[in-house]
Amino acid sequence: MLEYVLFSLLNSLVLGMLLFMLSSGLTLIFSMMGVLNFAHASFYMLGAYFGYQISTWVGFWPALVIAPLLVGGLGALVERYGLRSLHKYGHVAELLFTVGLFYIIEESVNLIWGRNAVMYPIPKILDFPVFKLLGADVSAYRMFMLLISMGMFVGLYLVLTRTRIGLIIQAALTHPEGVNALGHNVPAVFMLVFGGGSALAGLAGVIGGIFLITEPAMAATLGPIVFVVIVVGGMGSLTGAFVASLLLAAIQTFAVGIEYSLTDLFALFGWRVDATGFFRDIWRIQLSHTGPILPYLFMVLMLMFRPKGLMGKRES
């Protein structure tokens, strides 16, 4: 039992920090620009594929730097030449643009790298057990992922709170027109945030593509979860995104190992359910099988009872 709890906690932390790398950019972009970027997870996928490709040419370490920069540059171009020109038509046009972009990126990846997953292995230097936990190996790569995501978290925090550009970003989260009227180039800040958010998603892709899988469906797999994170955390709240990332990762990870059903739960109280009735299949579903839907259930409940999310400041 202790082994299950410890390993689930470790896996939750790794997955949660990966989710935060994606959701931090998405929530900043949404809060500042009002754009719900459906293509955000596509930048994560591009990060993984760019990381894979560059790794085959010059190795993993240059790829870890170059791929996020490329993805960030691409994100900045998308903002400058796509979203900015659509801004005057309102948020629906921007939303539809990002939906279209999602499919363009997915199909482009299919065309270039094929429909099957690519072999994106753990770099040899990180492919060893770093220590044993209750007799089981903990891989160095997992610790490396944790280190990178923690570093990104600390870096993002320092940039936002200790630098002038961070102050401008924080101010523009609430009154972009006010920041503009003080003489700061807010459109350029938008481009920087969109590019930066995309670069973070790209970085998550470079390391997450190895940990999970690098395939054309990876954006569609992780994208909805990232939306759940920012809704649960509260739209526009970085702290909320951080808490929700860890929470949802924990819910999913812990659920996988719990082999109990509603029948077992009722039995604890001495109740017996009808094993032949209309709901017989529902009583027998084990919690481990519901893992993938739990985050969405959580989101629906959150929207019903606390629409502004855990730490959000607005209702809509």
Partner: peptide, 22 residues
């Protein structure tokens, strides 16, 4: 653009104040 107008030396104190709360 507004930031260019501000950089030319024009300042604006809006009615809504636009204080950055964080």
């Amino acid at each position: 653009k507004p930031h260019q107008v501000a950089r030319k030396g024009i300042g604006f104190v809006p009615e809504d104040r636009w204080i950055f709360p964080g």
